[in-house]
Design a protein around this nucleic acid. Sequence first.
RNA 1: UGUCCGAUAGUAUAAAGGUAGUACGACGGUUUUUGGUACCGUUUGUCUUGGUUCGAAUCCAGGUCGGACAACCA
Length: 551
Amino acid sequence: MTEERALNFIEEIVENDLQTGKNNGRVHTRFPPEPNGYLHIGHAKSICLNFGLAQRYNGKTNLRFDDTNPVTEDTEYVESIKEDVRWLGFEWANELYASDYFDVLYAFALNLVKQGLAYVDDSTPEEIAAQKGTPTEPGTPNQYRSRSIEENVQLFEEMKAGKYPDGAKVLRAKVDLASPNMHLRDPLMYRIRHAHHHRTGDKWCIYPMYDFAHGQSDAIEEITHSICTLEFIPHRPLYEWFIDKLEIFPSRQYEFARLNLTYTVMSKRKLLQLVNEGHVEDWDDPRMPTISGLRRRGYTPASIREFCERIGVAKRENLIDVGLLEFCIREDLNKTAWRRMVVLDPIKLIITNYPEGQTETLHGENNPEVEGGEGGRDIPFSNELYIEREDFMEVPPKKFFRLGVGLMVRLKHAYIVKCESFVKDADGNVTEVHCTYIPESKSGNDTSGINVKGTIHWVSVPGAKTAEVRLYDRLFKSENPAAEEGDFKDDLNPNSLQIINAFVEPDLAEALPGKGYQFIRKGYFTLDKLSTDEKLVFNRTVTLKDGWVKK
RNA sequence: UGUCCGAUAGUAUAAAGGUAGUACGACGGUUUUUGGUACCGUUUGUCUUGGUUCGAAUCCAGGUCGGACAACCA
């Protein structure tokens, strides 16, 4: 059951269509990526919108690859896109390709040529651009615009037959060279490209442009609501012009504002640059805003869907605080992640009154958020432990609820200890903290009557395992790197990745791939794909919210 | 000096002429064997100038600001 929420403007349109009986009450959307890159969180917004609409109104959603440009596209991307959509939790009604429609599209084009609404133009790209005029000046027709229908039919057939080299000719719609909308100034429909297509092979040497493929594909599939981003608004009159002249199914286009996130970039071009120039490991680098990156980082599908739900859908430009995404993953993982103890930056804690060589096995629940704790695990304990360096201070300030000489804390799942002294090395760094423990304060049956403010995590030196832990920070230094002057890469955060070695409790050797773990007091982590039995590697998904501010 | 889209707390997003609300954030508190979680509280907003109206975030007009559009990309 979804929570009560105000409708967004697209849902209002759909409900209105449903009420007026449009499309016989049918709702059919599509998610139409071009297979030339990996999906990112911005696509997730579109996926949640399109699939969510169909779910809500009992409709269907097609997955359609907009593969009309053979030189940039590849099956590698097709596969990753399918994987990502499925991972997000959606199932498409049909897997379709614009390239499946090349024959129909060609027939549509011939139809327009025969109506005198399209013509073959021999001009160079530069000439065409010049003849289009400017936003304030109308375009000017050239001699090709008045070619006869017969000549156009023959030329277009010859284009298809491969008689001309790349760039020699294009097919253009004859709309209005004086339109204030630049997209109506005789837009290109087909260009010549003697290139191998990942699906149609070498069958074609002419390929339709976006404007003569997308809307037509929508019509062929009888898409009722074709949802795209704001930059396509000027294309809509052309979208409708083709539907009108071709007398095909009247799909309608609606536009919403794309997602922007603070401290990252969202354009495929920029993400590709980060990969190609080695600023990140790959498309699935955990710092990337790609779906595969977020997955590797430890984000769950539910958290991303929740995020998309919370950001809403509107037409105004936006820049969402990445803190909201972090809130969503914390909210999810808090309920599902198993708690474990890991020391990231160790110093030793010696319990002077606990017999050297003695060990005992303590118990810790897996998840305190769930009734019964979801079971638990054994934790070895001894007189020699690792604790976090930041949990001890030589000169503790007021309200420092951790260790300092004379202060007491509880060791999570274990005993209360009192700090008696500490040891420094030659450089003045603290290396050991010496404590005494209170035997009757054992977790679970504490009869000591002592209350302490702080509880800290620890790992027993005997039994401790090591792991590589990768700590991530924002990829860019400024909130909106795309808006910065100059090269956006100058804004890259040089400290976005920190790799450390940590001591982890032994149970973590059994960590499951894909599962979220909370390293108590430190954050949420998950096994990286590079992790092996010999060498554990964890990614930090997100830190815990930290209410402690040093004065 | 064109056409189109937009403007509500710090960030997002509601209110369809009738109480400006919600979430995240921030701040404060309660609980707590995670300075987490949970719970409670506080905080800040309708771009501007006019008009219509008993009443305007909402309708109208002008202005301001932001964005998109002149790829053989999508």
